[in-house]
Write a protein that binds this DNA or RNA. Structure first.
Lengths: 152, 152
DNA sequence: TAATAAATGAAAATTATTTTCATCTATCGT
DNA sequence: ACGATAGATGAAAATAATTTTCATTTATTA
C-alpha cells in the first residue's frame, strides 16, 4: 500500500505539523512522480506554480517528511541526496539507473537472514541496512535518452 | 589477501602515477588503521608528521587511489565520504558502528543471486550494488566510549 | 477572533569539494 | 649525475550543498 497525498497530510497534522501551503506543494511534487528528486529539483518544480517558497523550506520539509517516514532518501552517486515518496510503505530497496536516474523499487527484501548472521557473527546490534543497486535501465541500454519515471 | 603499503606503491607506479612524499603519507595513514577516515581526518593525521601537504592533495590522492581500486569509499550517514584501505581485495561490504564509527568487513557476499533475480525481473543491466549495514558494536553496547579500529 | 507556538524567508554562515594557475619535482633518457 | 618534461602540488578562489540566525508571518486552537 502506497501513501497518498491525503494520507500524508492527515498523518502529518496528527503528528503536530502544521499544514502550510509550502508543505502541501512539496508533498504534491513528490507525489506526482516516481523518480527521485534533489531538494533543488523539488524547489524548481514547485516554483513553477507558485513563487511562494524558498529552498530552505524545501530542506526543512524534507527533513520532517523523512523523520516521519513518508519519504525515502537516496544517497546518489554524486554524493547528493535524492528524495522520493515511500512506495510501498513496507521495507524495500531501490534500483537506480546510472544514466537517466529512473528508480525501480525492489520489494521482498531477502536480506534479513543475512543481517541476522552478520549480527551473530560480529556481536553488532543491527539498526538498519541499505542496499542500493545501480545499473542501466532497459531504455538506456537501447540508447534512448529519457529522464522521466517509470512505475513497475 | 590485503593490500600492503609496498604493494600499493609499486602498483601505483606501474600505472603511471608518481610516488610523491604526499602520496606515500596518505597511503601510510590509510594503512595504519582499520577505521574509515574522512579526507579532513587524513589531512590532520598526516599533518602531525609533516607540514608539507595540503588538503587538496588529499582529495586528489584519494580520487586516484579509489579509481585504481586500492581503497573503499563509504557514504557516511552524515552525507560525507569516508575512506579506508581495501581489505580484503575481494568484493565485500562494510558494517559501520553508528556510535564510534568502527568498521567491520563482511566477506562472502551472498547478494549475487539476488542481483541476478533483480536483473531478470527488471531488465536492468546491473553495474554494482552497495550494501551497508549500520548498528551498534559490542563495545558501544556496553557503554564504552571508543573511537579506534578493530580488526575482525 | 485573539493568543501562540510553529513555520517561513532572506541573508549569512558553514562545510565539503573542485578548479585554476603558477610553481615545483619525480622520473626517464642520456 | 643532469636536463627535459609530464605530471603533481599548494594557495586561493570558485562552486555547491546544507544549516543557522533572526525578524516576520501564519495555521491552529481555545
Amino acid at each position: 500500500m502506497d501513501y497518498n497525498y491525503k494520507d500524508i497530510l492527515s498523518a502529518l497534522k496528527h503528528e503536530g505539523y502544521k499544514l502550510t501551503p509550502q508543505r502541501r506543494a512539496v508533498i504534491q511534487a513528490l507525489h506526482s512522480t516516481y523518480n527521485h528528486m534533489t531538494p533543488l529539483e523539488i524547489f524548481e518544480k514547485v516554483s513553477i506554480r507558485s513563487r511562494n517558497i524558498s529552498l530552505v523550506t524545501i530542506y526543512r520539509t524534507l527533513d520532517a517528511l523523512e523523520k516521519a517516514g513518508f519519504i525515502c532518501r537516496l544517497n546518489l552517486e554524486t554524493g547528493r541526496s535524492g528524495y522520493l515518496l515511500r512506495r510501498p510503505r513496507s521495507h524495500h530497496h531501490h534500483l537506480v539507473c546510472s544514466i537517466c536516474g529512473v528508480v525501480v523499487n525492489i520489494g521482498n527484501c531477502e536480506l534479513e537472514e543475512l543481517e541476522k548472521r552478520v549480527s551473530e557473527h560480529t556481536g553488532f546490534k543491527i539498526i538498519s541496512h541499505t542496499f542500493d543497486i545501480s545499473g542501466i535501465c532497459p531504455e538506456c541500454q537501447n540508447g534512448k535518452i529519457k529522464t522521466s519515471g517509470v512505475k513497475i
